[in-house]
Amino acid sequence: MSVAILRKGEYFIASIQSDLSDTEVLALRDDLIERVGRFRALGIVVDVSALDVIDSFAARALRSIALAAKLRGARTVIVGIQPDVAVAIVQFRLNLDPLRTALDLDEALALLELRPERKPADGR
């Protein structure tokens, strides 16, 4: 199994264990979208720290997870993008919107705890 998906309260956490083929990426996307619909989850966390490469295909799949989840009122956070992968995404000019990113699982869950409709406090 290349992806471990576990449920934690109102959230699904998908932990990618190794590089994925396109077929596996699409299976993960469909699986997550289906689960969000079925369990009315509020959020999805996808841990991509095991991915050495995020190209346009993987980026598009991650975005479609986020877009589909958003339609069902859930938010998606990507955690663990490796430094070199982050540089590659930027140079490639891949668009990850509306994906949120966080450093690790704790950060991602904290981010999801913030209500989406809450206007961010601005000190200025």
């Binding site: 490796q82 070199d84 590659a88």
Partner: peptide, 19 residues
């Protein structure tokens, strides 16, 4: 770093075009 990742990403992209 980060060049091996950039090279692998470019290869992945073009290999997918083939498929």
């Amino acid at each position: 770093r980060p060049d091996p990742t950039l090279i692998a990403t470019a290869i992945s992209e073009l290999a997918r075009n083939l498929v």
